[in-house]
Amino acid sequence: MLELRLVQGSLLKKVLDAMRELVNDANFDCSATGFSLQAMDSSHVALVALLLRSEGFEHYRCDRNLSMGMNLNNMSKMLRCAGNDDIITIKADDGTDSVTFMFESPNQDKIADFEMKLMDIDSEHLGIPDAEYQAIVRMPSSEFARICKDLSSIGDTVVISVTKEGVKFSTAGDIGTANIVCRQNKTVDKPEEATIIEMQEPVSLTFALRYLNSFTKATPLSDTVTISLSSELPVVVEYKIAEMGYIRYYLAPKIEE
């Protein structure tokens, strides 16, 4: 038996919006640790890892580990029927082939339940080793989204370079080239507006902008984003979900042939 009650139901809607452009079907894994997901996009270029820790739920009951295969677009269709202030409870019985989403309005005058069919999804979990990154950039998530959107109107790929000077995002296309440099800036009114660069050594990697733009669908989940870079490793783009966990995106770099 599984019963997860999330007071901030809108958070689950945002989580779905952050994943469904990238992933069609995925297994949600439920354990004592929390509600999690790991899935690759259909071309196996990007991977998304979600964790919503059990402590972040108002009520969390998961009698045994359970993996529930869901179509994310269908799940999103159901969650869109919840009000933004609604409390969402996810329920499933052992051995059933469906999951129920219950929506309660804040003053309890409206209660709805939506039952969704589960699906069998073959997916293998990948081991993501802990790595030391050559550079870690933390910046406002809205700024990162703006840069990815702006550059994708010029080119298809971005070179992200971190040096002592800052982090540089560069692209080139048929109409011309673009470079955006963000310097470290800790002297801001609010900490979430800061750009912080921790660099062990300079690093420069090339990525497809299409995927980075998909990652920025997570922007409503967090004011800041952390970009971890190392040569010969996928970039990690992480959005922390306050008091709950994170959504992390891994993107394999492009290399010169």
């Binding site: 991977l47 081991g127 290399i255 010169e256 042939e257």
Partner: peptide, 14 residues
């Protein structure tokens, strides 16, 4: 033109 790599090149199945 740079070639896109896949995730499985970096992360192995558990």
């Amino acid at each position: 033109k740079p070639k896109q790599q896949v995730i499985s090149r970096f992360f192995a199945p558990k």
